[in-house]
């Protein structure tokens, strides 16, 4: 058996060497498909990290009017905390808010002077509301606005975050869709190209195949070289695409400068993604690349063999 495997691999390598331009085109097309899929997935994962990060930081800050006292403030906090969507409410008293404000504006001369002028604490109680799920913020926002204590609210800062969160959610959802569609289309193209390459190989070796069958070559022996050919294409393409994807992601990290949302996700979070996720899971990633490459190669060979080898 081992001898047969060795021989069929030898035949496969001969076949590839015989038609190396075709081989290069085939490997290239599988590699490009895998590369684009990789970059899409990396981008998607980086966006997820970004979203997670923002979700952890985001909350709705409810500023109560200055005249609302501590007791009424705590009552409102309890009420908001009883919403099923709310994870917790962080209560910031007037004094804490004032201290924090003073600290934050310590090097702003004008504000410091203005505070001295007022003398009293002009700030109200702040309630920092954290949702269980970032998608629930609009709902919580509406609930707070319509609750019985709405006349005690000075303002809610939700609107500033609203844009970012919904944009991000949308971006992630659409890039998920794009990733899936791209993956399917590119895989199909790669399979088609590999399929035609192997069909050409079968065609150019039809005499050899005829003789193999005539002298009693087993079905395994006759078809195995073409399966190996597909595997070899897949493996080489996987190696190339892994290296290319890694290089490309590194390049993005180094070269993204503007602070747009996309480059934020593409740079900082791709970096995080590379450093934490990729490096920790390199074995799984390389393995999955190889499997994806082999899958594409072998699928194409099998279709071609079924169609043209009549085994």
């Amino acid at each position: 058996m081992w001898l047969q495997i060795k021989r069929t691999i030898k035949f496969a390598i001969n076949n590839i060497a015989h038609n190396y331009w075709l081989a290069i085109a085939t490997i290239g097309s599988i590699a490009i498909a895998l590369f684009i899929i990789n970059v899409q997935i990396a981008n998607l994962m980086a966006n997820n990290l970004l979203l997670e990060d923002i979700q952890n930081k985001v909350n709705i800050s409810v500023y109560l009017k200055p005249e609302v006292n501590d007791e009424a403030g705590r009552e409102i906090a309890r009420k908001i905390e009883s919403y099923p969507e709310v994870e917790k409410v962080n209560y910031v008293s007037k004094e804490e808010a004032f201290e924090k404000f003073k600290k934050d504006t310590a090097n702003n001369q004008v504000l410091q002077e203005a505070l001295d002028e007022v003398g009293d604490n002009p700030l109200g109680i702040t309630l920092n509301v954290k949702a269980r799920n970032s998608e629930d913020y609009p709902k919580i926002n509406e609930k707070i606005k319509q609750d019985t204590f709405q006349d005690k609210i000075e303002s809610i800062n939700y609107e500033e975050y609203k844009g970012i969160i919904s944009n991000l959610n949308e971006e992630i959802r659409s890039s998920q869709k794009i990733t899936i569609i791209l993956a399917v289309i590119l895989s199909l193209i790669a399979v088609l190209i590999t399929f035609s390459t192997i069909t050409i190989t079968i065609y150019t070796h039809r005499k050899e195949i005829e003789i193999m069958k005539l002298v009693g070559g087993s079905n395994f022996f006759v078809s195995a070289p073409f399966v190996w050919e597909g595997i070899i294409y897949g493996v080489i393409a996987a190696v190339i695409s892994t290296a290319a994807s890694y290089g490309y992601l590194q390049y993005i990290i180094k070269n993204s400068s503007d602070g747009s949302l996309l480059s934020l996700s593409s740079a900082r979070f791709i970096k995080q993604f590379l450093e934490t996720y990729l490096i920790r899971n390199w074995a799984i990633i390389i393995l999955s690349q190889l499997l994806a490459g082999i899958f594409l190669g072998v699928t194409s060979s099998l279709i071609s063999i079924r169609k043209y080898l009549k085994i």
């Binding site: 005499k207 050899e208 005829e210 003789i211 069958k213 005539l214 002298v215 009693g216 070559g217 087993s218 079905n219 022996f221």
Partner: peptide, 17 residues
């Protein structure tokens, strides 16, 4: 295949590689 290994064949067109 096993059956064919017991049979030798030659043709008018030789069928050499």
């Amino acid at each position: 295949p096993k059956h064919r290994q017991q049979i030798g064949t030659v043709f008018q067109d030789y069928k050499l590689l």
